[in-house]
Amino acid sequence: MKDVIVYVEHDGGRPRRVSLESATKAKELAAALGGKTRAVVLGKDARAVGAEMLTYGVDVAHVAEDADVDAFAIDPQVDYLEAVAREAGPALIVVPYTMIGRDLGSRLGARLGAGMTADVTDLKVEGGRVACVSPKLGGLTITTCGYLTDYGIAAVRPNAFKASGGQAGGEVVELAKPAGKSYAMKVEDVVVEAAGEVGVEEASVVVSGGRGVGGPEPFKTILKDLADALGGAVGASRAAVDAGWVTHSHQVGQTGKTISPSLYIAVGISGAIQHKVGMRTAGTIVAINKDGSVPIGEFADLLVVGDLFQIVPELTNHIKSGAHHA
């Protein structure tokens, strides 16, 4: 028997979508393994978020509204997760493949002597064992890995699974504070620069701009407008980031983020291999480029050859006006 433990990343009282996706998948895995689905929710608003997790099929939401979790980076979370893992016994622990999730997963993995798999895009149970699928080498190879240890830690890529809520049952349980710990990594300040924005990793639609966009302004206007109209996020090629037009957190590709949105719109991006490896697993790829012979034309589902400054604003108008419903 094996439980599946999901670490829930949350912000402003809302679980991140990747955690909802993970919980939904965890329920399926736990059923196959004959174990329970547990969620671990820590810090400010943990109780409310824990209650919400129950509607995603979680059997037990372990919560702790411990001020130390918000006052110190990472270590308190690792201690709580470790406590839940040891209580559950041999288990699969699912963390998001995000900045925070990577840290938690790797620290916990080192501590528990657990097998760690990263950037997981699928999870299955085969013959009673968990198998993790992840693309390697920029998606050139797809590996399926198994754990050789009691505990396994899977860091799952956002947008890999569908979240499905509306379920009933389960309970919220308060966690005891891990005893005898002291923390050193003090959070002095939390600076929010882009409130309410979805990150490129998590967005289901990403509108990315490249060198062809020509400067910082269009990122804030025409690209942002299209992304907003589609409920998505703005991404960028490295050329745009290196030019200082947008910050590195928007960069898609080998030295940026690897993403799997359902729709990726590449605007003024040529589609170099280092860019391609970051977005080749998108559901649908649309490119807008004035050059019909660019590499992205070789793997985009649609390449529209024309001027981005004319096409993008028109497209935004169409989407906004709902003209496409006609």
Binding site: I285, V286, I288, G292, G297, F299, A300, D301, L302, L303, V304, V305, G306, D307, F309, Q310, I311, V312, P313, E314, L315, N317, H318, I319, A323, H324
Partner: peptide
């Protein structure tokens, strides 16, 4: 995939929509 050459913004937007 498909490649479409468009004459102006309206045509491009239409193709994408």
């Amino acid at each position: 995939g498909k490649v479409v050459h468009v004459a102006d913004g309206a045509e491009g937007a239409r193709a994408i929509v």
